[in-house]
Write a protein that binds this DNA or RNA. Structure first.
Lengths: 235, 235
DNA sequence: TTACGAAATGCATCTGACGTATGGTATGCA
DNA sequence: TGCATACCATACGTCAGATGCATTTCGTAA
């Protein structure tokens, strides 16, 4: 065992591997993909099969993967978001819920973006950039890019290093995506632009710029919902 | 291996054990209970330690139990609806988690307090005042007032009128109270004072004052945790 | 009484082995 | 040729034992 893990005895090895594995799933996999065998994953992550198995058990319990005896391990979901742990979907008024979600996001995400700008790794910066490109690609082909949007904001949360935020953002995001499904709303080109704006600020290690960009992004979208509510009220 | 499990080779042994374990938890345990060691659980369930470990990993991922290295395995929740929907208590480093929780609270609660100051009803104002009195009472009698603290902040969230916030604050609060149980931390008199400060600002419909008071309250407590981490690091 | 350190307890991880389910391939018969 | 069966490689499931590391407990000494 002479890998770079030895240094960081702060965290448990399995937790470390689980983080890496999640990262790997989010980055390289889509639902239905078959993962390498436990043995080769063990080699790949410089650990033993037992550890891989425990990590997989944990991921399976979270609904991320499915383990089929004699066959292999398969990816179920590539978004880290649990269905609805806060029971938000039981809300009466979808529009008002969406507005409230954006109010909460406006409290959290500008600050998170600022933290991300300070703490991001180069690898994470590249990841953000890739999300921008992919989202734009989906937009141009007029395909649904809601999942990519969730991943983008989740990635920023990951950059911040705050684990509470990392748990929170996907939940809020997926609640919003539910709203979008309900209202058939198509995201505008503006989203692509501000995503790039945010990404550039984070890449340039500009916390204030990142905070501003994120605020603008959220404020713009909040206003769109406000507008929709007004229209609905009049009609 | 001559137990009755041999017959039912339809299902996997670990799944069987997990069911039994869940049953055991729901039936005989309450949150905070310490489970027997992995070794003795293995004996009890007529299986090996590896299998027990995989089951526990799975339960931990579901937020049912928490595994503490060197200490033991503890029951987090005994109901299907976990009071820890974000799996925060499974965090490795309690102190860092507490710090991160306060970082999130500092993003949310000052703004929530400001909203509460604008939107509170008279009845809610009275309720806040009553919480202050009751908390002070418990403090003077040197009894635990953590629950009252949770109710206080939850009440402010309710005043804000934002349902997402109302769902979120209790989750964050109870995660912090877990931390307090771990560290035996006693809240200081300062808490009583700033709770009153916050309450008065909300009663006087002073959003800016409420925001300031809440910020000061949280910043003070965050600093206490920072201090504890420093002490621990040196010792 | 307090502080320090050693022993005991218990989780974390590794190794190696064998059981069992699955899926593909080769064989043989029609 | 086409299909059914047998076989085998792959991969997950489980077990046993050993060692490392973290936490807790407790006895001893200052």
């Amino acid at each position: 065992m002479t890998d770079e893990y030895a240094k960081m005895n702060r965290t448990l090895r399995s937790a470390h591997v689980e983080d890496q594995m999640l990262d790997y799933l989010l980055r390289n996999c889509k639902p239905g993909d078959k993962l390498p065998s436990e043995f080769s994953l063990a080699e790949q992550f410089h650990t033993s099969r037992s550890t891989i198995r425990e990590v997989m058990k944990s991921l399976a319990a979270q609904g991320m993967v499915e383990i089929r005896h004699g066959s292999g391990t398969y990816v179920i979901s590539t978004s880290a978001s649990a269905p609805d742990p806060l029971h938000l979907s039981g809300h009466k008024d979808k529009y008002r819920l969406a507005l409230e979600l954006f109010d909460v996001r406006l409290m959290l995400e500008p600050e998170i973006a600022a933290m991300a700008a300070e703490l991001r790794t180069d690898r994470q910066a590249a990841e953000l950039k890739r999300y921008c490109d992919e989202t734009e690609d989906l937009y141009l082909r007029d395909e649904d890019h809601m999942d990519k949007d969730i991943e983008f904001h989740t990635c920023i949360a990951r950059c911040s290093g705050n684990t509470v935020v990392q748990a929170l953002i996907p939940v809020i995001q997926s609640a919003i995506s539910t709203f979008c499904n309900v209202t058939q709303r198509k995201l505008k080109n503006e989203t692509i632009q501000t995503h790039r704006w945010i990404t550039n600020a984070i890449i340039n290690r500009d916390p204030i710029g990142a905070r501003c960009a994120m605020t603008a992004h959220l404020a713009f979208n909040r206003d769109m919902i406000q507008e929709m509510i007004r229209e609905r009220g009049e009609v």
